[in-house]
Each structure stands twice: as C-alpha cells, then as structure tokens.
C-alpha cells in the first residue's frame, strides 16, 4: 500500500450534527421543572448535566416507564404560579437589599413612589399599586434611620407576594456627604420596626 491509498475525505462530522432530545422521568420535585413521575423532553446536555447526574431524574427507558408508572397522556396539572419566571423573580427580589436614597437636607415622608424609583434604579420596574408600605410612617431626614432596615411587600402579577429588604441612605453633596462605606449591603444592621424583626431574621441574605 502506498501513501496515495490513505487519502481520506471528511464525509460527516458527528460532533456538530444536532442531536435529538432525550426523554427523562423525574424522581423528585424539581423547582421549575415538575414533580415525581413527570416526563421531560430536553436537550441531551441539559438533561444529562442538570437532571441525570445529580440524580433528579432517570432515563425514560421502557423498564423505568413501567417502574415509575408514567402516563404520557396524563393532563398537566394547572401551574401554581402566574408565570414560569415568577420563581426566578421572587428569588431575586428576596435576595435584594434595596437602597432608598433620600435627601439629607429637605424634609420628606417615605411614599410608594420613592420605592418605585429606587427599584427602577436597581433595574426592577415595579408599579406603585404592587408596593405595600411598612405599617409605620417613616419620616426624615433622620440620621438614626441610616443604619436600620425594614421590609416592604411587593406583589408580582397581582398574585405572588415577596418581601424586599430596604435600607434608607441619606444623600447630600459637598461636605455634608456621608462617608463611603465598602460593601455596605453586606453589613448586618438592626431592624427599624420591632414587629418586622422576626421576618427579617428569616429572610435569606
């Protein structure tokens, strides 16, 4: 055999051929995916990496279908949430520490539109009717509020309620400006309203 007998041509690169979806059966409740016995049809990488390796699901082989008594024609249960993304939004909001920037020189009373504006600054569009204010009226400027926190309740899609941690920051220019604090949102602070203390304690940081 000579060199000319080993001239090859690439017929097909199987690495870049689109692979078909694979079916899996959930073995436990997975947030945002389904409950035990649900059949999912997913891209192979996602199914393998996110469900099969951690052990949340098994392959939908004929044996497993019989074992978990899966009924593919079973009607899907009405979703508990108003939208598939609600859980994500709720997670983000519950982790958020909202900075409410208020004037250090002009007198004010905290109102929903202040909170709406602060949300807009952090990238959340929240209408005023969705914001439930704390039971106590907060007035300022009062520098004793600076190192305190409280929570407000936001209603998503007029259905799901989530508490958002808030802190007031007094703003001024020039020499009146408060000193800069590094990573102030990570610092633990005391609750402003004693009734909210227990709820704030339970909220994830």
């Amino acid at each position: 055999m000579r060199g000319r007998h080993f001239v090859y041509d690439l017929v097909e690169d199987t690495n870049i051929v689109k692979k078909s979806d694979i079916k899996i059966i959930l073995t436990q409740f997975v947030q945002g995916a389904g409950t035990t016995g649900d059949i999912l049809s997913l891209r192979p990488y996602k199914a393998y990496q996110d469900f099969l390796l951690p052990g949340f699901a098994v392959y939908a082989s004929p044996e497993n279908m019989a074992k978990y008594k899966v009924d593919e024609e079973k009607p899907k249960v009405e979703d508990m949430y108003s939208s598939p993304y609600v859980q994500l939004t709720m997670g983000q909001l519950s982790r958020l520490v909202l900075q409410i920037t208020m004037s250090k020189s002009e007198p004010w009373v905290l109102e929903p539109w202040h909170i709406k504006a602060s949300f807009r600054k952090t990238g959340f569009i929240v209408p005023e009717y969705a914001i439930e204010m704390p039971p106590v009226q907060i007035k300022g400027p009062d520098l004793s509020l600076q190192e305190k926190e409280f929570y407000i309740t936001v209603t998503i899609n007029k259905r799901e309620k989530v508490n958002v941690r808030c802190r007031i920051h007094h703003w001024a220019t020039g020499l009146d400006r408060l000193p800069w604090v590094e990573e102030h949102w990570k610092k633990p602070v005391e609750p402003l309203i004693p009734e909210q203390a227990s709820v704030l304690e339970k909220m994830q940081k």
Partner: peptide, 9 residues
C-alpha cells in the same frame, strides 16, 4: 474513537 492518520487532498 481514536486517531486516524492519513492524507488530505
């Protein structure tokens, strides 16, 4: 899978 040695035209 393994390594294929050959020529390309």
């Amino acid at each position: 899978e393994a390594v294929v040695k050959g020529f390309q035209k």
